[in-house]
Amino acid sequence: MLNRFQLPTDVVFLIVLWRLRMKLSLRDLAEILLLRGLVFSHEAIRDWEAKLALLLTDALRQRRKGKAGRSWYVDETYIKVAGQWQYLYRAIDRDGNLVDIYLSETRDQEAAEALFRSAVAVTGTTPDKVTTDKHASYPPALDEVFCDDLEHRTSKY
């Protein structure tokens, strides 16, 4: 059985990227590698993922710098994360590209402001137009982060 020291780092990154990007299970990925002559347990892949996922996340965020459009659509949904219900805020641009996400325990102005600040920091882009649902926390958050320099539209869809 091979261990992680016998593989180049870029191959390990590629394996973790496959897991995250293609939503493969740990056991499916171990089976795919076995078909290619590499014998790894799913526990080894899980260890690699734990160590490298943050590095991959940072690298992917750097690639988004300056590539977001000027028209953003922002929404939030309620999801269960590690057994606790949380709000997942998401901003996408007109072309459907991810601008940024933010996880919060509350659905309030502070969380919306944190999303907008993070999105600007990650992309280096300030939007001209933002479309949100009709939640009351968005207008004051937009005014606080962007002043009155943008068009705010609402849509329940």
Rank of each mutant, 00 (worst) to 15 (best):
E144D: 05
F5I: 03
V130R: 00
D93V: 05
E43R: 02
R117W: 06
A121T: 12
S137A: 15
R90Y: 11
V12N: 01
R63A: 06
L55N: 04
D10W: 01
R61Y: 07
R63N: 12
L7G: 00
S118G: 12
D93G: 10
D143L: 14
L55H: 07
T123M: 01
L54K: 13
P127H: 04
S137G: 15
D47V: 12
A59R: 12
P139Q: 06
I45R: 12
A59W: 08
A114S: 14
L2C: 03
L38G: 00
A50R: 15
S104I: 12
A121F: 13
V39P: 00
P140K: 09
G69V: 03
V11C: 02
R36Q: 15
H135N: 15
T77G: 05
D148N: 07
L52T: 13
T126H: 04
I45T: 08
I101D: 07
R107P: 14
L55F: 09
L34K: 10
N3R: 12
S25D: 11
E110I: 05
I92M: 04
D93S: 06
L26K: 02
D10S: 09
D108E: 13
D133C: 03
H135I: 08
L98Q: 09
Y102D: 01
R94P: 06
L34T: 15
F40M: 10
V11E: 12
P139C: 14
C147P: 00
Y157V: 13
Y73T: 04
L17F: 07
T77S: 13
G124I: 08
R64W: 07
T132P: 04
T123A: 01
E43Y: 08
T57P: 00
A82F: 15
D47R: 15
L52H: 08
E76G: 05
S41K: 01
R21D: 12
E144I: 02
S104L: 09
V122L: 04
R64H: 10
P8V: 14
I45G: 02
T126L: 05
D143Q: 13
L103C: 12
L2K: 07
H152P: 04
H152Y: 05
V11Y: 07
P139S: 14
S155G: 03
